[in-house]
Design a protein around this nucleic acid. Structure first.
Lengths: 141, 141
DNA sequence: GTATTTGCAAAGTTTTTGCACGTGG
DNA sequence: CCACGTGCAAAAACTTTGCAAATAC
């Protein structure tokens, strides 16, 4: 990620009255590089680069970044939430119950598909959080 | 639910090599009467009728019923899964992040909306498990 | 300097497991 | 009968919290 992007999230932190710490930087970088990750995976990733972080801090930081929309979370498995970058293309997920494969779907596509239904029920979906479970082609054959 | 329906699930239990126990009956009845419920809520509901059940059994039974498609589960909150009957109308959920309201959407509607997108990605969604988070009309005003 | 953030350790919550006893078929 | 299911208690997995020390600004 470029310097311009860095400045952007750093300013968003400041604007909301928070401080820029190495831990917050490391967690964000880990989420960006992992793509989709559980808190535990983020912790492990950060530890490979540096040992200056604690699991509690990972939880607290993920929550904060999520609030600030620096990252987003979705439920890709029945258990732990997974976090992913909100930078770049926002996307929804199709998750295969059988092989755990994750198919990322562009926001535009999902919006187009669900928009009318949502409007009918006067509901504003959080498309970036959407996960559709099911079976992928490889597993249903 | 009528006697005919009872026979149906009881036979499905048997057919899969399982036994018909009071606990399995109680859990199923609790899920049906609650609509949407977490394991804990199911446990509490069963206890109001009888004290012959244990939380572990509730977990084990919910899992079994889910496998047999007697019930289904969805993630209506960021935490515990909630179970609901698979009898009657299968449905997807719209959940409001703000007021926690749950809007049930008929399967047909969702299928119509997502069918094309799913086909394009050669994916078979489990519509009855689908939860769309977002904001309802009352909370977005 | 001082309010925020972190690390650590401890507790909380939810779910799973091992095993002896009970029970449905 | 006897394999399957349940209760119980203990453990595991995951997440949150209180507080003193460290640190961003």
């Amino acid at each position: 990620m470029g310097a311009t992007d860095d400045r952007e999230w750093q300013e968003r932190l400041r604007a909301s009255g928070h401080r820029l710490t190495p831990q917050r930087e490391l967690v964000l970088a880990a989420v960006e590089s992992l793509g989709h990750a559980t808190p535990d995976e983020v912790y492990a990733e950060v530890r490979t680069h540096s040992d200056s972080i604690n699991l509690s801090t990972v939880y607290r930081t993920l929550e904060l970044h999520d609030e600030l929309d620096l990252i987003r979370h979705a439920h890709l498995t029945d258990r732990a939430p997974t976090y992913h970058s909100s930078r770049g293309h926002e996307h929804a997920h199709f998750v295969c119950r059988n092989c755990q494969k994750v198919i990322s779907i562009g926001l535009g596509e999902v919006e187009q598909a669900l928009g009318e239904l949502a409007a009918k029920h006067r509901f504003s979906p959080d498309y970036g959080h959407l996960t559709v479970f099911g079976t992928c082609a490889d597993c249903s054959g």
